[in-house]
């Protein structure tokens, strides 16, 4: 991160250094440098096709970096398989096809855990954030409403006690009240559980509410970064930033 970042004594959870990635030979993201510390919510704003999802897929190991390095908990993780990273505490919430529609809510949740023995304690944790999820445990996930499906996604990620959550446009197509709910949960998770969150969004309001730092992604490059200070009208500033 750039020099104007406030030095903090918190441990770095994720760091990308000069990261480039894409599909086959086509570079989609280029020279990305970000650093996320414990309990930090880092927002990445950008319009469609700017490489937001590609960045998350690369960190999660679905795409191999073309260049640069990714460090997670001070270990290089570039080139590791997604299942390995998931086991090491990275929870990935993809934008599309993110739940198993034909499995029950409970089965979806079990799949997020390394062992079924953790299910009861995980359920308790989930109930605290989303009381509706345990009530629907026997229901097929495909029968949930759009908002409930997003809650299930969050719940599944939270159950595994992740150190880092990668969240891809979770607010897309949701009612404002639901966006509000999810915003609050994200904030609490970062504050209470010390989980770091890398949040990729088009929704400026959501990012303003929860993120500590924001980067703007344009055509695969980070063109601007800023710290969100309390009190300032961050939403307006960010909206202006995105317009440019």
């Amino acid at each position: 991160m750039s020099e104007n970042t406030k030095k903090s004594d918190k441990a770095t959870v994720l760091e990308c250094r000069q990261l480039s990635s894409g599909y086959d030979d086509a570079t989609v993201i280029d020279n990305i440098n970000i650093q996320i510390t414990e309990g930090q919510v880092f927002g990445i704003l950008g319009k469609n096709g700017m490489g937001k999802s590609t960045l998350l897929k690369t960190i999660m190991g679905f795409l191999k970096p073309i260049n640069g390095e990714i460090y997670y908990a001070d270990q290089p993780i570039g080139g590791l398989e997604p299942q390995v990273l998931a086991r090491r505490g990275i929870a990935y919430i993809p934008q599309e096809a993110a739940i198993f529609q034909d499995l029950t809510v409970e089965e979806n949740l079990r799949l997020g855990l390394p062992s079924d023995r953790l299910l009861p304690s995980g359920m308790e944790k989930v109930a605290a954030y989303f009381p509706i999820i345990p009530q629907r445990r026997k229901q097929f996930a495909g029968t949930l409403s759009g908002g409930e499906q997003k809650m299930l996604l969050m719940a599944r990620a939270l159950m595994s006690d992740p150190k880092l959550m990668l969240v891809d446009e979770i607010s897309e197509g949701l009612q404002p009240t639901m966006v509000e709910n999810i915003t609050q949960v994200l904030g609490q998770v970062a504050a209470k559980e010390n989980t770091s969150v890398l949040l990729v969004e088009q929704n400026v309001r959501l990012v303003t509410r929860v993120a500590h730092s924001v980067a703007l992604l344009e055509i695969g490059r980070i063109v601007q970064e800023m710290q969100l200070d309390d009190g300032a009208d961050n939403e307006l500033a960010l909206t202006e930033m995105m317009r440019v």
Partner: peptide
Amino acid sequence: QEIYSGHV
């Protein structure tokens, strides 16, 4: 405005 609330 509602559908895109929060979006640019």
